[in-house]
Computed example of a mutant assay.
Amino acid sequence: MPAPPSAAASTTNSTATLDDDEDELNDLRVAIAQLISLPQAGSEVKEKGRAALHGTVEDMRAFLDTGYRLAQAQDDRVALAQLHSKPDTSPELKTAVRAILRTSDPEEMRWFLEVGQYEVDQ
């Protein structure tokens, strides 16, 4: 029959687990801080990200898994609406913005804001 683990081994395992938990917590915090610092991060991303930072580990994971994408999509909708409402936005660009908004596809909205809008008026 194997000998039971010593108290020293048990303490070492507990310390290692605590260190691992602290490392994960720090990694989650850094990842969220980086996302809310991005230039395209609007008020929704910043608000939801800050709430996650003040929440539980599960809140932070949820933000990184799905919350960020949903918040960024909302910020992109706002940015597209602002672009559409600018007085100097061309009719062609306004038409393209309306088309992108109808799709509601987060990746298409992000691409349009980063690249597509600049290709419309060329």
Rank of each mutant, 00 (worst) to 15 (best):
122 Q>K: 15
89 T>R: 08
108 E>L: 04
73 A>E: 14
16 A>Q: 12
58 E>Q: 12
74 Q>P: 04
10 S>F: 13
119 E>A: 15
78 V>L: 08
51 A>T: 10
50 R>N: 13
78 V>Y: 04
108 E>I: 00
106 P>D: 03
91 P>K: 10
27 D>L: 07
44 E>P: 00
79 A>E: 07
16 A>I: 03
4 P>Q: 14
101 L>C: 01
36 I>S: 08
31 A>P: 08
84 H>D: 09
42 G>Y: 09
88 D>Q: 08
115 V>C: 05
102 R>I: 01
48 K>H: 11
54 H>S: 14
9 A>H: 09
10 S>W: 11
77 R>N: 02
28 L>S: 05
51 A>L: 08
39 P>N: 10
96 A>L: 02
11 T>Q: 13
55 G>W: 11
22 E>T: 01
70 L>K: 15
67 G>P: 05
90 S>V: 01
26 N>R: 12
73 A>S: 15
44 E>V: 11
72 Q>V: 06
18 L>V: 01
58 E>D: 10
62 A>P: 00
118 Y>V: 00
35 L>I: 05
2 P>D: 12
106 P>N: 04
67 G>Y: 09
84 H>L: 07
30 V>M: 12
13 N>G: 05
61 R>M: 05
107 E>D: 09
92 E>Y: 12
45 V>N: 08
3 A>Q: 14
